[in-house]
Design a protein around this nucleic acid. Structure first.
Lengths: 246, 246
DNA sequence: CCGTCAACATTGTTTGACGATTTCGTGTGA
DNA sequence: TCACACGAAATCGTCAAACAATGTTGACGG
């Protein structure tokens, strides 16, 4: 394992992962993939703002699909925590208050640490080491460049690489990466440059530990990374977190 | 928090959790809840066997709903990992090989330990302590009784209680409890009585540590519980794990 | 026995419709 | 002026029927 991330034949677990990391919503995708890609990309690029109301008639027109397919896709996105569904009131882009963000970090941290430990234990071949290094380089370049959508996609790619190296297929199903896109979309525009750099540099340290096949060091690097993120959260002003009223 | 598990007004996060633990698919539920309840209950009771093919025309007739609603529900269940969808080939009840089970345990363990630590830190009021004790008693009674469906439901209730006490709302979204129902459904019929008793007694020890508000002890109790489960898995014969071909 | 191809079965998607519920503007009365 | 009831519009939940795309099965010929 840990050579290619594609599964056997577009098989079972694939459509579960909400994303679609590599393919950019090409033509031959199913209708629901078109929706999920469009919405995730919309969140990353800022077209969709957390809390925004998604109207079915509007989306069906813009995406050129039927209402039934759209509703299936929204169910899918809701299960991933990207949108919330209110009966008779429609779908909203998810929104995270300060407590939700901290809860999310607490939940994500042990999973990320597990992923890092597993990746460190399996990162033996030079090819795998190169993959990990490349992922770290990409995220650092995008982090300096300032392209928000690109940065979020590279961040996700970094996690995907780490998870894939680890070889635990349940992990990729469980880790709430799509939900962190949401929280990044809220935070990215209000954090300072120092905070951003602190965050970016964390990935490089994690990659270094994984490439060195030092599971304990990787674990510690992830822990420090999350500690830093929590610190950033505490430093942010209150108005960075819209109240999650709905 | 940690007093009642119901959310404000049947609000956003509720339909995400695939379950429906307490209400038994009453009338006024939405169509998709009817499907999810029926399928989960079917898995617990043995009506649906892991790997079974779910035919849309059959299910629409048996549940008395339209195909559109059924497909939305199947998307929902697929996102939770309970069924797998193969394009143009339909939906199948999920199936877990030995590696998938071990991966699932590795993923679930750190989340369960986090939940236990949080619960221990918040289990202060006598009401909360009673809730936890009751959940442990229920699971032990069902474990001795031998009613498989009841045991699986009580096991889930135990986790739900623990998560609710902890107060981390992301945790309940992420923890793959429904998927463990699947794995329990496969394992329950082939494990020995000693193995079963070992598993049942673990919950009582976890509850005791939580009620004693000893986070470290709760963490250790969960760890031991998972170590025991892994040991059981290794002891099981190979034919307990159908090959996950599809 | 094996490969080819056609008929069948099942899923993917669209369209249209109807009832249920929420939302919002409007008018009325105090 | 403000609070509240009422009705219209908007939106969602569900269903039904149809066609297209794909997988499956079995007959046929070699």
């Amino acid at each position: 394992m840990a050579t290619k991330s594609v599964s056997k034949a577009g098989s079972a677990a694939e459509p579960i992962a909400v994303s679609g990391e590599k393919r950019a919503a090409t033509a031959a995708d199913s209708a629901i993939d078109k929706v999920t890609d469009a919405i995730i990309q919309g969140i990353r690029s800022g077209v969709f703002v957390p809390g925004q109301h998604l109207l079915e008639p509007d989306l069906t027109r813009r995406l050129g699909i039927s209402r039934g397919s759209l509703r299936e896709a929204l169910k899918h996105l809701a299960a991933a925590g990207i949108v919330t569904l209110n009966r008779y009131r429609g779908a909203y882009i998810g929104i995270l208050g300060r407590k939700s963000v901290l809860d999310l970090l607490d939940t994500l941290e042990p999973l990320a640490r597990l992923a890092a430990r597993l990746a460190a234990g399996n990162c033996v071949s030079p090819a795998d080491q190169k993959r990990m290094q490349t992922a770290a380089n990409m995220i650092e370049a995008a982090g300096r460049g300032g392209n928000r959508a690109q940065y979020m996609e590279d961040r996700r790619h970094f996690y995907d690489t780490m998870i894939d190296l680890g070889g635990n297929r349940e992990l990729e199903r469980v880790i709430p990466l799509s939900r962190t896109d949401l929280f990044r979309a809220q935070v990215e525009r209000v954090q300072s440059e120092t905070q951003r750099q602190r965050h970016v540099s964390g990935y490089g340290k994690i990659a270094k530990a994984i490439i060195g096949q030092d599971a304990d060091a990787a674990d510690r690097a992830v822990k420090r990374h999350f500690d830093g993120t929590r610190k950033t959260m505490e430093e942010l002003p209150e108005d960075a977190f819209p109240q999650e009223d709905f």
